[in-house]
Computed example of a mutant assay.
Amino acid sequence: MRENAPPKQLAFDLPLDPRYGREDFLVGTANEAAYASIEAWPDWPDTVLVLTGPPGSGKSHLASIWATRAHAWTVSAADVTAEAVTHCVSNGALVIEDIDRPGRDEAALFHLLNLARERKCPVLLTSGAAIDQIGLTVADLRSRLRLAPGVAIREPDDALLRAVMVKLFVDRQLVVDLRVIDALALRIDRSLGRAREVVAELDRDALGRGRRITRPLALAVLERLGIAEGGEDGEEDGEDD
Rank of each mutant, 00 (worst) to 15 (best):
E23K: 15
E23D: 14
E23M: 13
D24N: 15
D24H: 15
F25Q: 05
F25Y: 08
F25M: 08
F25A: 07
L26C: 10
L26E: 02
V27C: 04
V27H: 01
G28M: 11
T29L: 14
N31C: 01
E32C: 14
E32L: 14
E32I: 15
A33E: 10
A33W: 11
A34R: 03
Y35W: 15
I38C: 01
E39D: 06
A40I: 09
W41S: 00
W41D: 01
P42S: 13
P42W: 07
P42D: 03
D43M: 03
W44K: 02
W44M: 04
D46V: 01
D46L: 00
D46R: 01
T47H: 09
T47D: 12
L49R: 11
L51V: 04
L51E: 02
T52R: 13
G53K: 02
G53L: 05
P54D: 03
G56W: 04
G56E: 01
S57G: 06
S57H: 02
S57E: 01
G58D: 00
K59C: 05
K59W: 05
S60R: 01
L62F: 10
L62D: 04
A63I: 04
A63M: 05
A63R: 03
S64I: 10
A67H: 02
A67L: 04
T68V: 10
T68C: 09
T68R: 09
R69W: 06
R69G: 04
A70Q: 03
A70S: 05
H71Y: 12
A72T: 09
W73G: 09
T74K: 06
V75G: 04
V75E: 03
S76V: 05
A77W: 03
V80F: 08
T81G: 08
T81N: 08
A82W: 06
A82E: 11
E83Y: 08
E83I: 09
E83F: 10
A84L: 07
A84R: 08
A84H: 08
A84N: 07
V85Q: 07
V85P: 07
T86F: 15
H87G: 15
H87Q: 15
H87Y: 13
C88D: 08
C88T: 06
V89C: 04
S90F: 03
S90Q: 01
N91Q: 14
A93T: 00
A93L: 00
L94N: 00
L94V: 05
I96Q: 07
I96P: 09
I99Y: 03
I99M: 02
R101P: 06
R101Q: 12
P102Y: 13
P102T: 13
G103W: 05
G103K: 10
G103Y: 05
R104L: 07
D105A: 03
E106T: 10
A107S: 14
A107T: 15
A108D: 05
L109V: 12
L109R: 13
N114G: 14
L115W: 12
L115M: 11
A116H: 09
R117C: 14
R117S: 11
R117E: 10
R117A: 13
E118D: 12
E118M: 11
R119F: 09
R119T: 11
R119I: 08
R119S: 11
P122Q: 00
L125S: 14
T126I: 08
T126V: 06
T126W: 08
S127W: 12
S127V: 06
S127T: 11
A129L: 09
A130L: 00
I131P: 04
I131F: 12
I131Q: 02
D132E: 12
D132W: 10
D132F: 13
